[in-house]
């Protein structure tokens, strides 16, 4: 490791683990310092501790909504992504329509639309179960899932199209059906390649879930705003909210980097 970076760095000053000084992740160090300062402030200040415990519930809700929304988007996105590569013109057109509509509408508008148009209609008129409207987890996860399904469908499509045509031909020449070829040959290779961008979508969804505060879903931002309304301390309140989002997305992006490295050094 060290000898390799020396060769690359051509005798430049190197850090202990072998990174040239110039390429140290200074941004990370700055954030680390920010973390330490924030931690210190939180645990030395009564106000911060109160704020944190007040919005902790929202933090759990944010994570729950993101996990559920992401799981739905993974499945819906796959179905639409498969539709985008379908040779059936009807399926292709429907899938493309979905992608274009949901990518063309801002997330916040999707959230309003789902909350005040689609979900009430489905819940009361179709299913006759108006209590769904009081299920904040569902109300929050559905619009995120619908919007992100469109983005993820495009990632699936790109992944599927990145698998060489010869792979498809080899599978079909062995008598595999189109569906078998997708299931056993194309998708496994495609999914391996799209893991990093899919991880980034999770982080993006986590951040976008803050928009749900606009329709009163009790997630992190919502609780933060309530806290500020009660204490009038905007600086302290938004600091805490921003800090919590940042800590979550940084941990996740480290996870994505790890996946990226692993999928890059795979067996092909």
């Amino acid at each position: 490791m060290a000898s390799e970076s020396e060769r690359q760095g051509g005798g430049r000053l190197t850090h202990g683990v072998g990174l040239p000084l110039r390429r140290m992740p200074y941004w990370f160090i700055i954030i680390l310092i920010f973390f330490l300062v924030t931690f210190y402030t939180i645990f030395s200040s009564e106000d911060y501790r109160d704020t944190l415990s007040f919005i902790a519930e929202g933090l759990v809700f944010t994570i729950l909504i993101t996990v559920i929304g992401y799981a739905i988007a993974l499945v819906v996105g796959l179905v639409i992504g498969l539709g985008r590569v379908s040779r059936n013109p009807v399926i292709y057109t429907l899938a493309t329509l979905y992608v274009e509509v949901f990518r063309g509408v801002p997330m916040l508008v999707i959230i309003y639309y789902a909350r005040f148009v689609i979900v009430p209609w489905v819940a009361t008129d179709l299913l006759n179960q108006p209590q769904i409207l009081r299920n904040d987890l569902l109300i929050g996860a559905i619009p995120l899932a619908l919007g992100y399904a469109a983005y993820m469908a495009e990632i699936y499509r790109a992944g599927i199209e990145s698998v060489e045509r010869g792979q498809n031909e080899a599978a079909r020449s062995l008598g595999m059906s189109h569906v078998q070829t997708m299931r056993y040959i194309v998708l496994p290779q495609a999914i391996r390649r799209i893991l990093p961008p899919m991880g980034n979508e999770f982080i993006a969804m986590l951040k976008d879930s803050s928009l749900l505060s606009a329709i009163g879903v009790p997630e992190l931002t919502y609780w933060g705003r309530n806290r500020i309304a009660a204490t009038y301390n905007t600086f302290l309140g938004w600091n805490t909210v921003a800090f919590l989002y940042l800590i979550l997305s940084l941990i996740l992006s480290l996870g994505v980097k790890w996946i990226e490295r692993r999928s890059g050094s795979g067996h092909h």
């Binding site: 599978a171 062995l174 595999m176 078998q180």
Partner: peptide
């Protein structure tokens, strides 16, 4: 009708054994 391609087109995510057994099992 078996087919052999110029660029082999083995399935890179499967082992050699799985390459040879997959179609036997599912087809």
């Amino acid at each position: 009708v078996g087919m052999v391609f110029q660029r082999f087109e083995l399935f890179p995510h499967l082992t050699v054994l799985e390459n040879v057994t997959l179609a036997q099992r599912i087809v």
